[in-house]
Design a binder for these strands. Structure first.
Length: 285
DNA sequence: ATTAATGTTCAGAA
DNA sequence: TTTCTGAACATTAA
């Protein structure tokens, strides 16, 4: 479930320890389960990455990017249960990939960066700048949810007739929002999840813009959401705490914390759980 | 002991 | 063209 706030938290945790360090060895872990989906192959990755300096760590939508001095870049996509960890993996059986990093100063111990993934749906790519543009350029990925301007919302949402909840999950339309934050954003914006995207009024688009920024920025402050299954952790294997601030997600049958009158409903949209307050988020509003 | 549910992305179907 | 469905996967709860 790492979405934008969780991936941003990973990147911020990694950055001070990883930027400016040299990769001694990048290699696939011997894993109890199936090996991680990587490309190019292990040998090509080693040839291109070993000895390289990591110049920058950044986030691209829900992906972690490790930029190398050669201008190649690792692109890690955690999908459901992937974690980028500097220490203390929950277990060793689900470790999928390791970057062994050079000692910084003499005092520091050698450091490993790990990709740990319980379900194993995550992927890792090593891209040249040209490959990166093709794989993750504007044709594949819309503007980052935090970078969306009001004009971006006004211009992009009318492009589809799907329910707004479904549109928010379309990474080509707007990148970074996942199932959990889509419900939270729509609740704060007081928009019904089934409202057709192309029928949103100006006032609703303004509220959607503001709610997106508020929810995602607040969630980043709380270091993301760690759900009941405990999958998501930051770079040091610590919990996030935004789950305590969720107003609708996984709160079915509870009173709405905003209006106190409605009861949170759970429905299924695009095969995903969707939570909303029928009083705050009226269909016709 | 099965089965359903979990959520991201993509391939392929409608 | 646009939208929808199912599969990939491990684990837990029912």
């Amino acid at each position: 479930m790492p979405e934008l706030p969780e991936v941003e938290t990973m990147v911020r945790g990694l950055r001070p320890h990883v930027e400016g360090r040299r990769i001694v060895k990048a290699s696939r872990c011997r894993c109890s389960y199936r090996p991680i989906d990587i490309s190019p192959g292990v040998r090509a990755i080693g040839r291109r990455a070993n000895g390289q300096l990591i110049t920058r760590v950044r986030r691209l939508a829900k992906r972690v990017i490790l930029e190398l001095e050669s201008d190649d870049a690792f692109v890690i996509e955690p999908r459901m249960t992937g974690l980028m960890l500097l220490s203390d993996p929950p277990d060793r059986g689900h470790l999928r990939f390791e970057w062994r990093l050079e000692k910084g100063t003499t005092k520091e111990t050698p450091l490993s960066l790990w990709f740990w993934d319980r379900r194993g749906l995550g992927t890792l790519r090593l891209y040249s700048p040209e490959e990166m543009l093709i794989a993750l350029g504007p044709a594949r990925l819309g503007p980052d949810a935090l970078a969306m301007t009001l004009d971006d919302w006004r211009e992009r949402l009318p492009r589809t007739q799907r329910a707004i909840k479904v549109a928010l999950l379309d990474q080509k339309l707007v990148a970074g929002i996942g199932n959990l934050y889509a419900s939270e954003i729509l609740h704060l914006a007081r928009i019904h999840p089934e409202h057709p995207s192309h029928h949103l009024k100006a006032s609703q688009l303004r509220r959607l813009h503001n709610a997106t920024l508020t929810v995602l920025e607040t969630a980043i402050c709380y270091e993301g959401s760690t759900l009941a299954d405990g999958t998501y952790r930051n770079a040091l294997n610590q919990n996030g705490s935004y789950q305590n601030e969720h107003r609708v997600y996984a709160h079915a049958d509870e009173p709405c914390p905003t209006c106190g009158k409605g009861t949170i409903q759970r429905t299924v949209l695009a095969q995903r759980s969707t939570f909303f307050c029928p009083k705050c988020q009226r269909r016709d509003a």
